[in-house]
Each structure stands twice: as C-alpha cells, then as structure tokens.
Design a protein around this nucleic acid. Sequence first.
DNA 1: CACACTTTTCACGAGTTCGTGAAGTGTGTT
DNA 2: AACACACTTCACGAACTCGTGAAAAGTGTG
Lengths: 164, 164
Amino acid sequence: MTEDDEQMVLLRFVERFALVLREAGMPPMPARVLAFALADDADRYTAGDLARGLDVSPAAISGAVRMLVSLRLLSREREPGTRSDLYVLDDRDLWSRFMATELETLQRFEEAAASGVEVLGAHRPGGRRLAETRDFLAFLRAEMAAALARWPAERDRRAAARED
Amino acid sequence: MTEDDEQMVLLRFVERFALVLREAGMPPMPARVLAFALADDADRYTAGDLARGLDVSPAAISGAVRMLVSLRLLSREREPGTRSDLYVLDDRDLWSRFMATELETLQRFEEAAASGVEVLGAHRPGGRRLAETRDFLAFLRAEMAAALARWPAERDRRAAARED
DNA sequence: CACACTTTTCACGAGTTCGTGAAGTGTGTT
DNA sequence: AACACACTTCACGAACTCGTGAAAAGTGTG
C-alpha cells in the first residue's frame, strides 16, 4: 500500500466519522478536524498540518480549531521559539469532555422545561407534562454524570483484564 | 390575563424550548410542534389545531408531523367518521423514546470508530485512539440504556414520595 | 528593522434549508 | 355524483451556512 493509498483510507474514514459528528450537531469542518486528529498517527498538529492533511484551506482550519478549542476537545500549545501553535487532542478523556458538553445541552433542556412549568402553571396538563420532562431530564443528567465518572476506573479495569 | 396573553406566554415558551431542541439537531418546525404539543393543554391535535396554535401554514405542519411520527415522538390516530388525523403525544415515555434515538446516534459513532480500527490497524496510535473511543462509546451506551430502563420505576417512586 | 512564514480575518459565491402560497389529492357529506 | 373540507405536495424566494481566496496581522529570524 503506497503512502497515498493510506492517506486515502484515512481521509475516507475521516469523512465517515465526521458525518456522524455532523449528524450529532457539529459543523462539517470541526467534525473533520476532530476526526482527523483522532485517527491520524501524530499526537500534535500545527494548523498547517491539519490543512495539508485534510487538503482544505488554512482559513477553514482557523475557524474549526477555534470551535474545537472552545469546546475543550482540542488544546492549544506553544513550543517556545516556534511561530505556530500546536493543537493537541488530549485523548485521555476526550470523550468524557465531549459528553460533558452534551450534559450542558441536557441542562439547558431541563432549565427550559422548568421555566415552562413556572410560566404555565404545574396544575394544568401542559405544565404537568413539562414537570415530568424536567424530572426525567434531571434524572438522566445525574445518571450520565455518574456513568462518566465511572469510566476511568472501568477503562483501567478493562485494560488490566486484557493484560491477563 | 386575557386569552391572547396566555397564548403569547405559551408561544414564547414554545420558541424557547424549540431552540434547545434545534441545538440538539432537530429542524425548527418539528421542534416547535413538539414543544407546542408538550406545553399546550390538549392531549390530541389535528393538523389544523397545530397550524392555528402555532400560527404557521398547514404545509409547514405536514412536514413536521411526518418527521415527528417517524421518530415516534408523535403518533397518528384516526377517529372513525372524521376526515382528519389526530396527533397524540404519548407523554408516558416520550423522553425515553427521544433518548432512544440518541442511543442510535451513539451506536453509529461506535460502529464508525470500530470500522476505523479495522481499516487503520489497532497497533498504530490513531487506531489505538479509535479503539478507546469505541470502548468508551460502548460503555456509555450500555450505561444510558440501563438508566433509561430504570426511569419508569424511579418516576413511580418519586410520585409515591410526593403522595406522603 | 525589514523580511519570511504562518495564521487569522473578511467578503464573496455556491449550495442548502426553511416556510409559504398555490395547486392537487383524498375523504366524508348532501 | 358533486361538493366541501382538510391535508399534502410542489416550486419558489428568503435566509443561512460553509469553505475559499485575498488581504491583513502577528511572530520569530537574519
């Protein structure tokens, strides 16, 4: 397999994975950058690396990494004496952080439902449905947070099991 | 508070709640219809009810309810001898069903990650990251499914507690 | 201090999505 | 059988999103 073939395989995967991220609400370019940083073998990238690797304009990278950094899915580092930032995908708990943003979404749902109960009144059918919604969301959010907290131990347990 | 004022309060809430649904990936009109059906006091609606209630064209309702029905968030009923379908929001486990679609998204992530491990190779850094991703997603999906299964009992427990 | 290099900002064009009005379809009524 | 009513489909216009190229800004080097 030539180097170009490998790159092709990688990019095809990137598009496939990015598509799922997009369906989950992430804009196309951040999705591609995240998928690429995850699947490519390097563990730190300059903006130029990402642009060349994905074969897109540097301008597109700029916006994408800004979003990913703000979501804490990528972190920016700077080696002293160099003129470009390095973007690092901290894979140790990348997905916990990804899910943490989902939890925030869940919380916004919950707050919206709660405010609905307030303005519409809990005694009416609509308000009662909203109250149930709010309770369910609160329950689910707590459960998810607990599950996320359990993951590191679970991961180590699995890794230890594989050692045997 | 006049009837119009109440309607205004309701519609304001609908837009607020729909916004969160949209941020979670639902198109605007289905989001509004779902929010309206949830917060308004009726428990079944004709397409016309929804169009008038939301003050949008019947055409917009048509597409929105089709999507919501296909997502099983709304169900279609037909009273014999009437010429319009009735849309029912089955609030008993509306949110479990909503979350079930989220679980499918999670599964697509998982499958995409797994296929990446296959084509890229588990021994390389990128492949290893994807394998961890796959494992995390599998863990989380199992945890969420378990939490969803616990909800009905939990809800009843809470309802019983309120009775005291 | 000017230059070389990288990244960012900006404005534009292509493509997509959304909701409407108008026409069409289906169903029950007279 | 013709009509009345409700809903659906379709094509359009408006608004938005996305990624690009060009210009600007920032940063280390000679």
